[in-house]
Design a protein around this nucleic acid. Structure first.
Lengths: 249, 249
DNA sequence: CATTACTGCTTAGGGCGTAAACAGTACATC
DNA sequence: GATGTACTGTTTACGCCCTAAGCAGTAATG
């Protein structure tokens, strides 16, 4: 279960990538990494990421918690794999031939869609640069959107970085707002948010805030409109476009 | 330690806001909420957010873990207050009179600066809309940047949302990259990242990715340049500007 | 058949958050 | 000043968590 010199990745990740042949000796395995990971996704979907524990996942499979450690070196490893599986669940994105701009926008939408289907993903902290299969496959697709453009490889990566992190953070914010509106699990339900802020601040010290409160912005019953998302994406794409224009005069 | 009908917030938050008078009865308190929160920040800075536990914070203050529960209802509450304190540490941002665009850019920089000084903040999950003092004070400053603009209150909030989430996500990404480059704590150090990806994918299936790998993009020794940050911010500001233009024809 | 590598399991240890019960303290009231 | 009362910090205890260690069973290898 430790690192394999070959790739530098944990063994479980190699299995997930399909690189690594099962040892031939001992008894047949009662489980598979994929089963375990999928069980984890099931638990996360049903009970939230907070309920994800080794014992909980094991219970889902009818085995003991320690059995999982024959497939995964630590809980953190398993978590990463679970997130990767959840991300991939949204269906595989395939680049079309609509030009980089429309394709890249589709790509951003695909990521948002994945978060919408599995919002719990957003609660799992990212430990570092992506190394899991679905994640990298998605990156590949994004890079392909930029194939015909005059950007340097480094610039392409910057574009990917900027775009995914925008999507992720927007998804995260909109998820929180939605939760606050359904008022389960949040400290302050959305329809009371304005009152709370008003109770704790003064119009003298917080004039700009009170202006917003007075306009009852927080009492609207709508979710964050997709328009805001598209708007931000479009602005970023504008920026990329300008960058390209400066490259291939 | 429960909710006070007055504000709808937990008692500890009310104390943090300065709204709530100490009960006059019992023995003098040996601690203060501020002390506790600051001790938490100290621990987080020194040993990371993972080391933050009730006992650890208590030890820092020379008391028992349970003593903290006289000031805070749960660990989650304390965490939020610790994050708020860490955010405020960056120094208070004050709006100047440089026009909304330059002021808003300064505002974004101030947030980034706060994350740079206390990167651990980025690892604490956000439980919902902000309700803590420094956070709201910072929001107030941001709203003031937009004071003279023709945006509606709702639009102003959207701008705030878009901008902060961009800053946060960019900070988060750049922090991860930096960590991966110093290669402590990360699964895959940055200078091996390209090799790892190459070992686990094929150029046939991942052509676009291999192009980036071949360009040795991941082996550069530089951190993400501030230029990329400014660039993204500028694009978003462009977008806001266009929105304003459409409002006050 | 004996060896060997691998399986899943049970047990146990240390850490966590926090509920409950307790002895001591300082103000409010008499 | 005595008493009651509300509040203090502490100790103890429970349940949950991750996971190291040791164990009996299994299937391929020699």
């Amino acid at each position: 279960m430790d690192e394999d010199r070959g790739t530098g990745l944990p063994a479980s990740f190699e299995v997930a990538w399909g690189v690594r042949d099962r040892p031939t000796k001992g008894p047949k395995r009662g489980l598979s990494l994929e089963q375990i990971v999928r069980a984890g996704v099931t638990v996360a979907k049903a009970e939230g990421v907070g309920a994800l524990s080794m014992s909980r996942v094991a219970k889902e499979l009818g085995t003991s918690a320690m059995a999982l450690y024959r497939y995964v070196a630590s809980k953190d490893e398993l978590m990463q794999l679970i997130v990767d599986e959840g991300l991939g669940e949204a269906g595989t994105f395939e680049v079309g031939d609509g030009g980089w701009r429309t394709e890249l926008e589709r790509w951003a939408w695909a990521e948002l869609d994945a978060y919408r289907r599995n919002p719990w993903i957003l609660q799992v902290p990212i430990p570092g640069p992506p190394v899991t299969p679905r994640n990298i496959a998605f990156l590949e697709q994004g890079l392909r959107c930029l194939a015909g453009t005059p950007l340097s490889p480094g610039e392409k990566m910057s574009v990917m970085l900027t775009l995914t992190s925008y999507v992720r953070s927007w998804a995260s914010v909109s998820m929180q707002v939605n939760e606050a509106m359904s008022s389960n699990g949040t400290l302050v339900p959305m329809d009371r948010y304005g009152d709370v802020l008003a109770a704790v601040t003064t119009p003298e010290e917080f004039p700009a805030l009170h202006e917003v409160i007075a306009a009852r912005v927080f009492e609207e019953e709508e979710e964050l409109p997709d328009y805001d998302f598209v708007f931000g994406i479009a602005r970023l794409l504008d920026g990329f476009e300008a960058l390209m224009a400066s490259r291939d005069v």
